[in-house]
Amino acid sequence: MGKRILLIEDDLHISKMVVDFLTKEGYIVVCAYDGELAVEMMKKDAFDLLILDLMLPNMDGIDCLKIIRMDSLVPIMILSAKDSDIDKALGLGFGADDYLAKPFSLTELLARVKALIRRASYKTKENVDSIKLDGIEILPNSYSVIKNNQTIQLTLKEFQILNMLATNRNKIFTKEELYRRVWKEAYYEDANIINVHISRLREKIEEDPSSPKHVKTIWGIGYRWGDPHD
């Protein structure tokens, strides 16, 4: 199956040109035409690469990049007409992996796409130590799990929560502890952000998210890794 690319570009002409070209090269290209839509799509689906324009409606490319980087380590290439050293430093400083200025050559775009995806695949093959626990294999280097012979991609925050629970299986974590350890910020009684991430994690790894066996709720306290004998 072809690698999946999310193209975040509001110029319809450029978007169609890139989609047509990369599709012919065997990639699956999904389009988002503004930053807010891109952020929502990243919450619901997994991609092997993002191509991100800086000048976007509703939410600009830099804000989009910062939000996506909070939850994902997917390779990101900035594609923009703003070709200055400041913009390059700003984009790369917030977590982009490469930068290509408009106008650009489709041949150069393809070379950079291949390089970024290849580099990311090398990283997932390094240090392939994994944790096998209760029918789930946790792969720290690719932020994913394997269950029923299928690889399930998690966001960065989802993986951090899962890894913390699984490697401390006898410990109950309060929402405050999870928030402080994963978000590395003070906890302001905003329980909903934890609830949302726990819910998404369960949807991905549990057979029945409404009756979870792995990520258990301890009512009035917090969460722990499930005991197979529960």
Rank of each mutant, 00 (worst) to 15 (best):
K114I: 06
K102P: 00
G2S: 15
D87A: 02
D83G: 05
V19D: 07
L116V: 00
T107I: 14
L92T: 02
Y188N: 15
F47N: 06
D45P: 15
D208K: 06
F104K: 03
E9H: 01
A120F: 10
D48W: 06
N163R: 03
D134S: 06
R180P: 06
N192H: 08
L133C: 07
I136M: 08
E177K: 01
S144N: 12
K184H: 12
L37Y: 10
S84N: 08
I78A: 07
L162E: 00
L65M: 11
V182F: 02
A101P: 00
L73M: 12
E25V: 02
V19Q: 08
S105K: 09
L156I: 09
S15V: 05
W219D: 07
L54W: 04
M77Q: 04
L7N: 03
R202L: 02
M41W: 04
D48L: 04
G226M: 05
F94N: 15
L139R: 11
Q160V: 11
V113K: 01
G93P: 01
L109M: 13
D97I: 02
I67Y: 00
A96Q: 01
T155E: 00
R200T: 12
K147H: 10
I172H: 04
R118N: 14
L156K: 09
M1F: 10
I67E: 09
I8G: 03
N163P: 04
H214D: 10
Y223R: 10
F94R: 00
I62Y: 05
N170C: 05
Y27A: 12
D34E: 14
M55Y: 03
K123I: 12
S84H: 02
Y179H: 15
L6C: 07
K43T: 15
N148M: 09
E40I: 07
R181T: 13
P209R: 09
N170D: 15
E189S: 14
Y223E: 10
K88S: 04
N141F: 11
G35D: 06
A120D: 14
L73C: 12
A81Q: 05
I67T: 11
V18D: 06
R119P: 08
I193A: 08
L37W: 03
D11Q: 08
L165A: 13
N127R: 05
S105R: 05
G26K: 01
A96D: 08
L162Y: 02
V128W: 06
I28F: 08
Y179W: 08
E108P: 00
L133E: 14
A166S: 14
L110V: 01
G220E: 07
I161D: 01
N170Q: 13
R200A: 15
D83M: 09
L106M: 13
E158D: 13
K16D: 15
P103M: 14
D208S: 08
Y179E: 06
F94Q: 12
I136F: 01
K175Q: 11
E185Q: 13
T217K: 09
S105G: 08
D45W: 10
K66N: 05
M1P: 10
A115F: 07
S130L: 02
